[in-house]
């Protein structure tokens, strides 16, 4: 794991916390002394348009700031899934929201009902903690406790609890 450079893409719709999710992941990596670069691609809509966040985490210097060989793509929208399905390697995991995305039965497709689960949790805004939990389970880019630490440092107490719960849930339920 030491020499591995991880590339994670979080794709979906503006307003789903994809950028914040990417930043949280990058911060956790920096907390562990790793290098991290986070970039984003977005349209002119603040809410509802296609949006993606890319994170590269490495022990080495990171030059090219975009994910050209992703290890994992999170697809919270059909557009996100379709955009990456054809261009990623066979080994790349596509973690998709089975409530909103129709998948194409790739070998490394993993579905999870993100939309339904976040409704159960009762706070839609905690969705980034939920998907980060799942991402970490599939790609151990940072320790879960590092990520929890970043959440503790950045979130107000009243929403921290639900976010930590979402993180755990996302982590536990994915295999």
């Amino acid at each position: 794991m030491a020499e591995k450079t991880w590339q994670i893409v979080l794709a979906g719709t503006g307003g789903q916390g994809l950028v914040l999710g990417g930043v949280t992941l990058a911060k956790a990596a920096v907390l562990e002394g790793k290098n991290a670069v986070q970039t984003q691609t977005y349209g002119i809509q603040s809410r509802g348009g296609y949006s993606q966040s890319e994170v590269i985490i490495s022990d080495e210097d990171i030059y090219f700031p975009k994910c050209d060989r992703p290890d994992l793509v999170l697809a919270l929208s059909q557009q996100g899934y379709d955009r990456y399905r054809g261009i990623v390697s066979d080994e790349c995991i596509i973690l998709y929201d089975q409530d909103t995305v129709k998948n194409n039965n790739r070998l490394h497709d993993i579905g999870y009902p993100f939309s339904a689960k976040i409704m159960d949790l009762g706070n839609e805004k905690a969705i980034n903690s939920l998907f980060l939990g799942s991402v970490l389970k599939l790609c151990p880019v940072v320790a879960k406790k590092s990520l929890a630490k970043v959440l503790e440092n950045s979130l107000p107490a009243k929403i921290l609890v639900v976010n930590l719960k979402a993180l755990d849930l996302g982590y536990e339920e994915i295999s």
Binding site: V30, N35, V37
Partner: peptide
């Protein structure tokens, strides 16, 4: 745009 919006240490 990439440099402006990119996050790094």
């Amino acid at each position: 745009e990439v440099i402006g919006h990119m996050r790094e240490s």
